[in-house]
Write a protein that binds this DNA or RNA. Structure first.
Lengths: 249, 249
DNA sequence: CGCCTCCTTGACTTTCATCAACGACTGTGG
DNA sequence: CCACAGTCGTTGATGAAAGTCAAGGAGGCG
């Protein structure tokens, strides 16, 4: 039932990142017992309501945290990118609050609570980092909530594209403003609270306006960042400092 | 500029809670230097973008965490109730991500980061509790996000009322399904992503359907919980376990 | 080659925002 | 004690934004 592990070989050659993110390397060094797991695009790694007392650290690829209403409508709460950490369940409430779905082929680590509570000073250091990641996740979710509540379709899509762009850029996964985009328009609609049809119309309008472009079917390029920021209501530098963990320079 | 403290006298007689929540008592006992602050209804306690490196613990009353778009539209991210804890800013990013506004007259504590990092075993215990509160806050925000993205006006309002009801019930601040409701319809619209006019229409429709009632202008009663749950897409018991910290019985 | 998923566009419907007006209530100052 | 202003809730009329339904086309894969 759980996705199969495939040993701890290093991800290479996929083009979507040449190695694991630094935080993952640290976890792997700290606990050699950790095994890298993988799942193909589309796989549901965890389902809302499942028993779960662990956390997840994404190594490669994209994953979605989502929730679903009884009538089947699904909302993506957060998109996980390489290096992202998510609390799936806790000891006090060992039930998954969200579904986790692989948006592309992914590799990830499953972290048990005891792994994160060790007294090892290295681990204490990591705990600080995890806390910072939780804060940035909260900040992202709040930004998304603001758009879902108060912004038009264009504002929501512009926001989503910019959020992903800024985060990928920080990971070194962009070339200029171009990046690989594994989500379908349907999934983008689940993220922005729009129908797939309206996502399509909005994106096409932006494309015709020269704001975005599709250099190839699986990539997207943000050809007018200023316009996107204007539409999304974002000041790019402020936004970066809010949703990224500022690296010491 | 900051709201004035008024010493650490116990809140009595206001009717909205006879004493501070247990977690607040623990903080006050642990650090007698802490001073209770207060702010009147409507006061902006912190504004988005302000310098802030502290956290807040609400003692009495309701407060809103909100974000605003450049055009002035405001979205309430979370409603704080007595005993709730919010990270306003962190050492790594000492800028408030949200505005904090008093929805009623409030009393609260300002917690400095060093207060929460002490090695005192009592404090370690509190840290665990704070972590649990952060998780429940995440769960609430995710539920709200789901409604803003995928639910109708009725679903959003039903959700908001139920969330507040369940949390207030847990605090002992309800009588049956009735509770004091200090938010205006405009604020409820900022919480649910609706215009004040549409909030009004939706609530009136529910009132005519016998789902909610206004026993007096400042109270609300949820006269048909089952119907509200159905509209909101909620299973009440599952919902409780997701957004509350389960008390040991 | 054929199936299937995804994107695209058009036509129509629904939902909700906006604008405007009015009444109830609250607190305030004369 | 009473005019007064201000906020809040309520309702109607209207329009814009986005959902739904439907159909066709392009690309990927067995």
């Amino acid at each position: 039932m759980p996705p199969q592990d495939d040993g701890a070989r290093i991800a290479t050659g996929s083009g979507i990142g040449v190695a694991y993110p630094p935080i993952a390397e640290r976890f792997l060094r700290l606990d050699p017992q950790l095994r890298v797991q993988s799942a193909p695009k589309g796989r549901l790694i965890v389902q809302e309501g499942d028993f779960a007392d662990h956390s997840m650290l994404l190594l490669t690829g994209w994953a979605a945290l989502s929730k679903t209403l009884p009538d089947g409508d699904t909302q993506i709460i957060d998109v996980m990118l390489p290096g992202d950490f998510a609390l799936i369940g806790a000891v006090v409430a060992p039930v998954a609050a969200c579904t986790v779905e692989a948006l592309s082929d992914v590799q990830f680590l499953t972290l048990q609570p005891e792994n994160a509570n060790g007294a090892d000073p290295q681990m204490a250091d990591l705990r600080g980092l995890l806390a910072a990641m939780i804060v940035t996740t909260q900040a992202r979710t709040a930004e998304l909530l603001l758009r879902l509540g108060k912004s038009s379709a264009a504002g929501r899509i512009a926001y989503a594209l910019l959020e992903l762009y800024v985060r990928l850029e920080d990971l070194g996964l962009t070339r200029n403003t171009r990046f690989a985009f594994p989500m379908t328009q349907h999934k983008l609609g689940e993220f922005t609270g729009l129908s797939n049809v309206h996502v399509c119309r909005t994106l096409r309008r932006m494309e015709r306006a020269g704001i975005v472009a599709y250099p190839d079917p699986h990539d997207i390029a943000l050809t007018d960042l200023d316009a996107l920021c204007e539409i999304a209501g974002i000041d790019l530098e402020t936004f970066r400092s809010g949703i990224l963990i500022l690296r010491p320079r």
